[in-house]
Amino acid sequence: MSSKGYDYSITRTLDAPVGKVWNAWTKNDEYGKWAHAEEVELDVRPGGEWRSVMVIPGGARVPLTGTYTEVVPKERLVLGMNVPGSDEPALMAADFVAEGNKTKITLSQTFDTAEDRDQAEQGSNMLLDGLTAYLAEN
């Protein structure tokens, strides 16, 4: 991450083994189910591109694109998201730690402004809520 100044880190322990959590983050069909996304394309490798259309409450569709910058299977994903009007992608790290049949996941990001950080943190909590519900059902 950079030293821009406004960061967050969210850690949750999920009731699923790390392989299942990893697959939920890296398989097109699974990611779309819990992340409320359509048209999901994930090329999970360093330099690989990802794209999806997020469907937000109310039905609005938001196209998202980016690139994976770091991939350590079942341990770490760092992905950049292209942000309109910005020369640099917003980077997010997802760290996975196996704890028996559970997985500790930590999402973290750093931003230039507190407002951007707060919006991203809210979005990350929504992602983790969706992931938690998906893992409980599958």
Rank of each mutant, 00 (worst) to 15 (best):
M1T: 15
M1Y: 03
S2V: 08
S3M: 11
Y6R: 09
D7T: 09
Y8M: 04
S9T: 12
S9R: 14
S9V: 06
L14G: 09
D15Y: 04
A16R: 01
V18P: 06
V21E: 01
W22I: 06
T26N: 01
K27A: 07
N28V: 00
N28G: 08
E30K: 09
G32E: 01
K33C: 02
H36Y: 15
A37W: 00
A37G: 01
E38S: 04
E38P: 08
E41P: 00
E41A: 14
E41R: 10
L42Q: 07
L42H: 01
R45P: 08
P46A: 12
G47T: 00
E49F: 00
E49W: 02
S52T: 04
I56Y: 06
I56R: 12
P57G: 07
G58E: 08
G59L: 15
A60R: 15
R61A: 15
V62T: 06
P63C: 01
G66N: 06
G66W: 03
T67G: 10
V71C: 07
V72P: 03
E75C: 14
R76A: 04
G80Q: 05
M81Y: 00
P89W: 02
P89Q: 07
L91C: 14
L91K: 15
M92V: 15
M92D: 05
M92G: 11
A93M: 15
A94Q: 12
D95C: 12
F96P: 10
V97G: 09
V97T: 15
A98T: 08
I105P: 05
L107A: 05
T110L: 12
D112F: 11
D112C: 10
T113P: 06
T113Y: 00
A114C: 00
Q119A: 08
Q122P: 01
Q122V: 03
M126I: 13
G130E: 09
L131M: 09
A133K: 13
A133E: 14
Y134C: 02
Y134E: 04
Y134N: 07
